[in-house]
Amino acid sequence: MTTSGADLGSPKGMTRRRAETRRRVVEAAYDVFTEMGIRDAPVELICDRAGFTRGAFYSNFASKEELFLAVYEVQTQERTTRLRAAVAEATAAVDPTSPDAVTRVLQDAGVLFMESLTADETWYLLNLEFRAQALRQSDLRAPTAAAERRFHDALAQILLDLLGRLGLRLTVEPHSAVITIVRLYETMLEQAILDELPDTADNRYLTQVLPRLLTALVAPADG
C-alpha cells in the first residue's frame, strides 16, 4: 500500500461529489474505529454509518489502514488548528517580563499540547493500535511516519511561535524537542492507564515534569 500526504484529505482533481463521499466515510470511520478499534471495525458498518455501500469505500481507499491514515490526518489537522488558536489566546495577555511568566505559560501551554495529542483515552489507544500495526507491516511504515512527521512539524512550529513570544529559543532541533515531549508523555500516560490512575499521572506530568523539561530545552533568544 502506498499513501501520500495529498491522498489523505481530498486529493487534487477530485470531484466535489467524490470529496463529499470521502469526507462522510472518514467521519463514519472515526466513530466506528473509536468504538471498536481498527481490527474489529467492519467495513460494512463504516459504510452503513456513512450511508453508502462497500463500493464507496473501495473507490476511495485500498484498505482500512489507508482509511485510518485519512482519519488521522483530518483529526491531527483539526487538533493543530485548535491548539494554535488556544496557545495564541493563552499568551496574548502575558507579560514576558514577569518573574513567573515563563513557568506559568509553559505549564499552561503544556496542558494544551497534551490535549491536542490525546483528546481522550480512546483516541490515544486507537493511535497506539495502529502504530503497533505499522511497526509490524513494512508497507505501512513510510505513510505512517510521514503522517506523524506532518503532525509533529505543526506542533514544533506552534512551540517555536510560543517561545518567540516569550523571548526564548529552543536549544535543540524543534522536531527532536517535540518527539521528546510526546514520547515522555505517552510513556507516563500508558503507565497511568495500566495503574488506572490517569488523572493523577497527567497532573503530575503537567505541573512538575513538563515545565521543567521545557525549561531545560530553552534559552533566552538573545543568548
Rank of each mutant, 00 (worst) to 15 (best):
L168V: 01
I38N: 04
V87T: 01
A177Y: 09
T187P: 00
S116Q: 07
A70W: 07
E196L: 04
N60W: 07
T118F: 09
L83E: 03
C47A: 15
I46W: 09
D95N: 10
G55V: 14
R16E: 13
G223E: 15
A85N: 03
T2E: 03
S63I: 15
T15V: 01
T144C: 03
A62R: 15
A147N: 09
F61V: 12
L194R: 13
A154E: 05
L155A: 11
S10I: 02
P143S: 11
K64A: 11
A145C: 13
L162G: 04
L125A: 10
F113Q: 12
I179G: 00
S98N: 09
G164V: 10
M36A: 05
V87Y: 08
P143Y: 07
E121C: 09
L210N: 02
G164T: 06
L206G: 09
R136I: 14
L125E: 04
M1C: 05
L106Q: 09
R18G: 05
A216K: 05
R17T: 07
L112E: 05
A93P: 01
L8F: 00
R136Y: 12
L210P: 07
T171C: 14
R131M: 14
P99R: 04
P96D: 02
T3G: 00
D161Y: 10
D139S: 10
E78H: 12
V94F: 03
A119N: 12
E73W: 13
A93L: 02
Q208V: 09
L217E: 13
E44D: 15
V26M: 10
R104S: 06
R23W: 08
L162S: 00
L163D: 05
A41R: 05
L135H: 14
S138W: 14
L184V: 09
L210G: 02
D195R: 01
T2Q: 04
A221L: 14
Y72R: 02
D222I: 09
K64W: 13
H175C: 01
R169M: 14
D139N: 08
T207G: 10
P96F: 06
T53A: 14
A119H: 12
Q75M: 07
L170D: 11
D222V: 10
A146P: 12
P42V: 06
V25K: 06
L213W: 11
A119P: 06
E27M: 07
R82Q: 02
Q137G: 02
A92D: 06
P198N: 08
A90W: 03
R39H: 12
G9W: 02
A219Q: 13
L159T: 03
T215D: 15
T76V: 08
I193A: 04
F33R: 00
Y185N: 04
H175A: 08
A147S: 13
A93Q: 00
G164N: 05
S10K: 05
